[in-house]
Nucleic acid binder design. Structure first.
Lengths: 110, 110
DNA sequence: CCCTTAATTCGATAATTATCGAAATATGGA
DNA sequence: TCCATATTTCGATAATTATCGAATTAAGGG
């Protein structure tokens, strides 16, 4: 992963409204959520959320698909996976503490 | 992990100079690197790097220790581990694709 | 074709961030 | 004590980002 790609992804998650939106989409799973519903849930203007969702999408963390009048957003788990991989390989190559934390999280998540 | 803590950590990695500094520290391992050496390696002013390193430290991703005239910075692998954990548990709870990517990275890193 | 709903793009403004030089602080040595 | 080195803090400036209302685009239904 390019370093610029990584900073874009980190930047996308580096803002509270955006991180909250992303977490909503993670919880929503494959069904995803329409833009307006996310805006309502987070108490922000539709145009604000639209900007945020666009940024998350350009960062490769969510996808979008038009469904009639709605535009449904979904978490892009391949994108998140790539970011985790970057953090582990390029950033923390082989470090015991990180590996242990990740292994523990993996087991809990299983 | 608080959501504000997570955004701080992501923000710390969301800037090219800072991410490069962090990666240098990861590669340097437990010996760490003095602030000035990092600045020289990245071709930025010492005061600029000082600001960046301070931000990384407040985000819990690096630690610092005075060593005579130098201030030696080190990657804080506990902090990185906590961030990975957040990304896996709070953000991508139990999602197959992410788990697979992480498991693959874990094996390579071993 | 017009109306309503859903979302985006545009334009403006306020807030935050990145950068650096200059000044200040800390350390060690002559 | 004075000087050189290492780093930080301060202050200023330029650049980027967050936010929202208004205007625009797209879709469905009468």
């Amino acid at each position: 992963m390019e370093i610029a790609t990584a900073t874009d992804a980190f930047a996308a998650l580096a803002q509270e409204t955006r991180l909250r939106a992303f977490r909503l989409l993670v919880r929503a799973g494959p069904a995803g959520l329409p833009a307006g519903e996310i805006a309502r849930a987070l108490g922000a203007a539709p145009s604000t959320l639209s900007t945020h969702l666009g940024l998350l999408q350009r960062a490769g963390l969510v996808t979008s698909e038009r469904r009639s009048r709605r535009i449904v957003y979904r978490a892009d788990f391949d994108g998140v996976g790539a970011l985790m991989r970057f953090l582990m390989e390029d950033c923390c190559k082989g470090h015991r503490t990180v590996r242990a934390a990740v292994r523990a999280a993996l087991e809990e998540a299983a």
